[in-house]
Simulated scan of single mutants.
Amino acid sequence: MAKAEWLTEHVQYIKGLKSPTATQSLLVELAAIANPSAQESRQLDKLVRLEKINQKADAMKAEAARMLSARREDQRKARTRELIELGGIVSMVDFPVDRGTLTGALLWALDQFKTEDDLQHTLKKRGDAFIAERENEKKAESQASAERAAAEQTPA
């Protein structure tokens, strides 16, 4: 876009503002001069550069706000996923779905970790083995189901 076009459009934009800044008002004033002096032309050029810099700064601020918003959204989704997974674990082991009982069991485990150094490692191994076994059972069930479906589709 040519400088004159940009200036014309931007002057119209500034005129539409409820409260333009002092530099914006001066830009409009200098742009309205039909035959500006050399000093007025220099001042106008400086104000145009300032407005373009301000536009770029506003665009970068908006981009930064979008990035922050996306980052917060990603963190929120990660936390939600973690909570869902933890709820799935409670369901997987058929633990009583009572908040008080679950909280008490977790607090008891934390107390035990303080007194038995190896307990956390032992529990982790047991839990990892349980989860691996469940995943293997699901894979086997899924594979058997796929084989049954394939057998049903095969003509005799």
Rank of each mutant, 00 (worst) to 15 (best):
A78N: 02
A64W: 05
K56T: 11
E82P: 00
R76C: 02
L83M: 08
L83N: 04
A70D: 11
T80Q: 05
I53W: 07
G87E: 02
R79I: 03
T103Q: 13
R72C: 03
Q55Y: 10
K52A: 08
Q55S: 10
D94R: 08
L107W: 12
S69T: 11
F95L: 15
T101C: 06
A64P: 00
N54R: 10
L102G: 03
W108V: 13
I84R: 01
L110I: 10
A105R: 07
A59D: 14
D94F: 08
M67E: 15
A70N: 07
I84P: 00
K77P: 00
K56Y: 12
I84N: 01
L68Q: 13
N54A: 15
F95E: 10
L107Y: 13
M92I: 05
L102A: 07
D58H: 12
I53Q: 12
E82C: 00
D94I: 05
G87R: 03
T80R: 03
M60L: 14
F95I: 10
E51S: 09
G104F: 12
A59Y: 11
R76D: 01
R72P: 00
A62G: 04
R99N: 13
R79P: 00
D74G: 03
P96Q: 07
L106T: 13
K52R: 10
M92P: 01
T80M: 03
N54Q: 14
L86R: 08
A65Q: 11
A64N: 09
E85T: 02
N54C: 08
M67V: 12
I89M: 12
V93I: 15
L68C: 09
K77D: 03
D111T: 07
K52F: 07
E85D: 09
E51G: 02
V93K: 04
A105E: 12
A64D: 09
E51H: 06
Q75N: 06
L110C: 13
L106C: 14
F95W: 14
A59N: 11
R71E: 10
L107D: 12
A78W: 00
M67G: 04
A62K: 07
Q75H: 05
K61M: 12
R66L: 14
E63K: 08
G87W: 01
A78E: 02
T103L: 15
E63F: 07
K52H: 05
E63D: 11
R66W: 05
G100P: 02
R72K: 06
T101S: 11
W108F: 14
L86T: 03
L107M: 15
P96Y: 06
K77L: 07
D111G: 14
